[in-house]
């Protein structure tokens, strides 16, 4: 609170699968500009919580206050790319939906050194190339809030470097980041704060 505004908050949030509570009475506040690492074992509820923050699902009890979706960037487990469309078509599509400028997509491809294959369908790309395109989906519209679910998992070395770089830039711009990860060193290098989940509870 000290001076910096609250960007994201959860008040007594519960989320169930059937009768089973996947999240139990979660309450927290995250200040603007923070980088929060969400830790916990598999099945602790990390993905469920991140989905609530990205408004993919609503809590059954409690409330979540988050910025509008136009100001949010979300990366889930999947790449979110269409195989039949070209790299630039993919990025433009996602950019338009988020209200990003058309040049943003071109600039992103230049930055990740894929502008020479911008018109080729993603189907023909290698794994690493796809990852570099897919990161643009979350970053090209410069969102105020980034919600990233296991962003480092399965990335090749080059993409890991790229991701660390763009995360630093986003923090530099004053964006707020919430991310979950198993790759503790990569995350701890950036995190200003951690939240730990154990069987659906904050500990």
């Amino acid at each position: 609170m000290q001076g910096s505004a609250v960007m994201l908050s959860a008040q007594g949030v519960w989320r169930y699968f059937g009768d089973f509570p996947a999240l139990r009475d979660i309450t927290f506040e995250i200040e603007a500009g923070a980088c929060v690492a969400l830790l916990g074992h598999n099945g602790a509820g990390k993905t469920t919580l991140l989905k609530l923050l990205a408004r993919l699902a609503a809590p059954q009890k409690g409330t979540i206050a988050a910025p509008p979706l136009t100001d949010t960037g979300y990366l889930g487990h999947g790449l979110g790319l269409y195989e039949d469309l070209s790299a630039i078509e993919n990025l433009r599509f996602w950019g338009e939906l988020h209200g990003a400028a058309a040049e943003a997509s071109t600039e992103w491809l230049k930055r990740v050194e894929l502008d020479h294959v911008a018109a080729a369908p993603v189907r023909q790309f290698s794994r690493g190339m796809r990852q570099r395109v897919a990161l643009g989906r979350a970053f090209q519209h410069f969102p105020k809030l980034l919600v990233l679910d296991e962003p480092f998992t399965g990335l090749d070395e080059r993409s890991v470097k790229l991701l660390q770089e763009v995360l630093r830039e986003a923090l530099g711009r004053g964006s707020t980041i919430v991310l979950s990860s198993h790759q503790i060193p990569e995350v701890m290098a950036l995190a200003t704060r951690t939240l730990k989940l154990d069987r659906g509870r904050l500990v």
Binding site: A54, L56, L69, T72, G78, L79, G80, H98
Partner: peptide, 14 residues
């Protein structure tokens, strides 16, 4: 469904 695009669409402002 391929590459979880549906999830990405639902996370978009559409």
């Amino acid at each position: 469904l391929m590459n979880d695009c549906l999830e990405a669409l639902r996370a978009s402002p559409v």
